[in-house]
Amino acid sequence: MMLLVFMQIVFVLGVWQWLGGGLIPSPGKIGLRILEIIKSGSFWDNFMMSLILTLKGMFFALIIALAISYLSLVPFFRPLAKFVIKCRYLTLTGLIFLFTLLTSDGSQLKLSLLLFGIVPFFVTSLLSVIDGIDKQEYELCSTLGMHKWRTLWEVIIIGRLDQVFEVMRQNFAIAWMMITMVEGLSMSEGGLGAMLIKSNKYIDLATVFSILVIIFFIGVFFDYLLGALRYSFFPYTKIQLRNK
């Protein structure tokens, strides 16, 4: 299978290289530009800026989303959770002015925008995990004499921790995609998004595509890393997947 995928990639790259040179730069040109970008010191500063902001955003978003999701079990908080889910349809661009007034610097502005952008997606995924819990698991807890807090801990918190990790993995892609957008909205402190906007401005398509390829591979790497960590922390998830 791996060999087949490898051969298909080589074929596509070969065709692209052969037909290249028009609007989209050829793979060879992009590859050379990637090397140049990586060698430049400013790339690593921008990369670290984006990565740290994404991780920070993921961390806070997860805490906020978990709090909203767990609270949604109390009927009083259910409408709040439902409203947060609907916030997926709000656009960040319209909120820049408001967040600029509410925050004191560019870093806070980007973090706030990122949080506002990804928390609804986190809550959506987490609520679907909670809603998907078999009622019989709660009944098992009651037959074992567990009180409500222990049931919450066993079934929803500990029992679904592996799925929280999976939600995190899936939503990292959204956060990573959103980070370039947020950095584009507030370019003051750089980042991969700011690099992209600048390159676009000067119609430097080789650099644009090189940054896109770098962003793509970093995203894929983190997807793999979070998946591997999930299997390592929660070995039973592998069995569950195999049984499906």
């Binding site: 019989q136 698991e137 009944e139 098992l140 029992g159 921790l161 592996d162 039973y236």
Partner: peptide, 13 residues
């Protein structure tokens, strides 16, 4: 009263 359901629910984690 203990309950053993038809699909043998256990804590899978």
């Amino acid at each position: 009263v203990g309950v053993v359901s038809q699909n043998y629910i256990l804590f899978n984690h």
